[in-house]
C-alpha cells in the first residue's frame, strides 16, 4: 500500500516535470502517434494487398495488433523506469544513489520514470482492438473479457521482465546489449502477428523463452473462437501466467546480479 502511494506520488511529480516543456511534450506525443499510426498503416496496406493471413482474417489481424500495442505501450508508459532508463542507471552509477535509500531497488527504479507520451500509442492500439472486435464479430462473454484483461496484464509483466535482462547484463559489464532488443522490440514486432505463421525455432523462442504466444496469442485466439494449436479452452486462462513466471525467474537473476554489483561496485 505504502509502495503504491510512493509510486503514484513519483508519477505525479515526474509528469509535472515533463509538462514544464509543454511544446516539446506535445510534439513528442504527436511523434508517438505518427509512429504507431505508421505501424498500423503498414498493417492496413498488408491487409489491402493480401486480404488474409492463413486462417486469420483482417479483423483477427487488427485484434492481435491492437492487443500487442496496448500491452507493450502500457508497459512503456508506466514501467518506463525499467524499460527505458535502467541500463543507463547501471552505467552511470545512479544505482548507488538508489541503494542509499531505504526502499526496494526495483521499486525505486520503477518510480524513476514515466512516459505519458505513449498515451497516443495506446490509443492507436485501442482503436485497432476496437476495429478488430467489430470486423471479427466477437460474441463477448464475461470470461472473454476476463481473459483479455489477464492477457494484457500478464503481457505487461512479461515485458517488464524482458527489459530487465539488459540491466542485468549491464551489471555484469557485458558490452553489447543490443541483442536483447531482439526479445523486447523484436518480440513486439513479431508477435503483433499470430504465432502460427512463424517457423519452428521462432515459435519456440516466443513460446518458451519470451512467451508472448502464451500471454497474448492464446487468450486472443480464445476470444476470437479460433483456438491456437487446437489447445483446450482452459489453456487460455492458465497460459498467460507464464508471463509472471518468466518475470520471477528474471527477478531472481536480478537479485543475484545485485549481490554481484554490491560485491564489485561499478
Amino acid at each position: 500500500m505504502d509502495t503504491a502511494k510512493l509510486y503514484l506520488h513519483s508519477m505525479g511529480m515526474l509528469i509535472k516535470s515533463q509538462l514544464q516543456y509543454p511544446v516539446s511534450f506535445f510534439l513528442q506525443t504527436l511523434a508517438q502517434l505518427v509512429m504507431e499510426g505508421g505501424e498500423m498503416m503498414a498493417l492496413i496496406l498488408v491487409i489491402d494487398r493480401f486480404d488474409r493471413l492463413g486462417q486469420w482474417e483482417a479483423g483477427n489481424l487488427f485484434f492481435f495488433f491492437g492487443m500487442m500495442a496496448v500491452t507493450f505501450y502500457l508497459t512503456e508508459c508506466f514501467g518506463r523506469g525499467i524499460t527505458g532508463n535502467f541500463p543507463y542507471l547501471v552505467r552511470s552509477g545512479g544505482l548507488d544513489t538508489i541503494l542509499v535509500r531505504p526502499r526496494g531497488v526495483l521499486t525505486q527504479v520503477l518510480c524513476s520514470a514515466v512516459d505519458p507520451r505513449r498515451i497516443t500509442c495506446i490509443a492507436v492500439g485501442v482503436t485497432a482492438l476496437f476495429i478488430g472486435c467489430r470486423l471479427s464479430v466477437i460474441r463477448w462473454t464475461f470470461l472473454k473479457g476476463l481473459v483479455l484483461a489477464e492477457g494484457i496484464l500478464c503481457g505487461c509483466v512479461l515485458i517488464l521482465g524482458l527489459f530487465m535482462i539488459e540491466a542485468i547484463l549491464c551489471i555484469h559489464s557485458v558490452k553489447s546489449v543490443e541483442f536483447v532488443n531482439a526479445l523486447t522490440y523484436g518480440g513486439r514486432s513479431a508477435c503483433q502477428y499470430p504465432m502460427d505463421i512463424y517457423p519452428r525455432p521462432l515459435r519456440i523462442l516466443f513460446t518458451v523463452i519470451a512467451p508472448f504466444a502464451l500471454t497474448l496469442h492464446l487468450p486472443a485466439s480464445y476470444i476470437l473462437d479460433k483456438p491456437l494449436y487446437g489447445w483446450p479452452a482452459w489453456a487460455a486462462f492458465a497460459a498467460p501466467l507464464s508471463g509472471p513466471v518468466v518475470f520471477l525467474i528474471i527477478y531472481a537473476c536480478f537479485r543475484k546480479a545485485m549481490r554481484f554489483y554490491r560485491s564489485t561496485g561499478s
Binding site: 511529480m13 515526474l14 552509477g93 544513489t97 531505504p102
Partner: peptide, 25 residues
C-alpha cells in the same frame, strides 16, 4: 555525492523533499 545530484532536476526542490518524505516514511 558531490558530483551526483540526488534531487530531481526539473521539479521545485520542495516537491523533491516531499517525495523524500515518502521514501523515508
Amino acid at each position: 555525492f558531490g558530483q551526483r545530484m540526488q534531487l530531481w532536476w526539473d521539479v521545485p526542490i520542495l516537491d523533491s523533499f516531499l517525495l523524500l518524505k515518502d521514501i523515508y516514511r
